[in-house]
């Protein structure tokens, strides 16, 4: 192992130890009624992972999340492309989207429930309203930042419109779009979990809120831990991919 990779490794280790130390400190300060200790939590999470009933909740969350992310990604990229290419429409829309992004979307939850009722569709809708706007905003920026000289090059090479799109526009806009999808991924997950906390009887979000209501601190902490591990792992993968497309 070279010195540099060893340093990196040491740094990551320090970070993990620091986070665990904060956790232990919080537990010592607030006690078992607020948060369970790291060892207890890991043990409990381990037991959860071998329970079939836990996996039905995971499946419920994943199903809603997959659907919500598919809709956010497809819708966000498509609308973003249109608004990016049509400059005027984009200029009109951008501040509106920016404002929508700032709205605390939880407050829309009663509306969502009234429109979609309790269950799957409300969860999905919640995921989509969180995820779609950042994907749109990143895609608009991606299209706008394509250097005009690339388009003129395409014309000079007399590429057909389809060819221009596939071999110039898409590769040029790709890196930014991937960044948008990464951000959208995290926010869609957040939306789905919030949806489950209020508008569902199944899923990981439900397990967390149920743990709170039943004062089952171990359950809440363990599920929270698993969700965070999943989110961070997925984000790291996407980040690695993101960095690849940005450099290559």
């Amino acid at each position: 192992m070279s010195r540099l990779t060893f340093n990196r490794f040491a740094d990551s280790l320090i970070l993990v130890v620091a986070i665990l130390a904060v956790w232990v400190g919080l537990h010592a300060y607030a006690g078992d009624s607020a948060i369970s200790a790291p060892a207890t939590t890991f043990a409990f999470a381990g037991r959860l992972l071998v329970q079939p009933s836990f996996w039905t909740h995971v499946a419920a969350t994943m199903e809603a999340f997959a659907l919500a992310f598919a809709i956010s990604a497809a819708g966000g990229v498509a609308l973003g492309l249109v608004l990016g290419v049509r400059r005027f429409a984009g200029d009109v829309a951008e501040p509106i989207l920016g404002s929508l992004y700032t709205i605390p979307k939880v407050t829309l939850y009663p509306l969502m429930l009234l429109v979609f009722g309790l269950g799957m569709s409300a969860k999905v809708a919640f995921g989509v309203i969180h995820g779609v706007i950042p994907i749109m905003l990143f895609t608009i920026a991606a299209v706008r930042n394509i250097p005009p000289v690339l388009l003129r090059t395409a014309r000079a090479l007399r590429l057909a419109p389809v060819k221009t799109a596939t071999s110039v526009l898409v590769p040029a806009a790709m890196p930014e779009v991937v960044t948008g999808l990464r951000v959208g991924f995290a926010l869609t997950l957040l939306g789905v979990l919030i949806g489950e906390m209020f508008a569902s009887q199944r899923g990981l979000g439900f397990l967390i809120i149920n743990g709170i209501n039943n004062h089952d601190v171990r359950m809440t902490t363990a599920v929270t831990l698993l969700v965070v591990i999943f989110a961070v792992a997925a984000n790291s993968l996407l980040l690695a991919f993101d960095r690849r497309v940005h450099h290559g």
Partner: peptide, 9 residues
């Protein structure tokens, strides 16, 4: 990964 964590939990 900060903003990937669903903080509401």
């Amino acid at each position: 990964s900060w903003y990937a964590v669903p903080f509401f939990v």
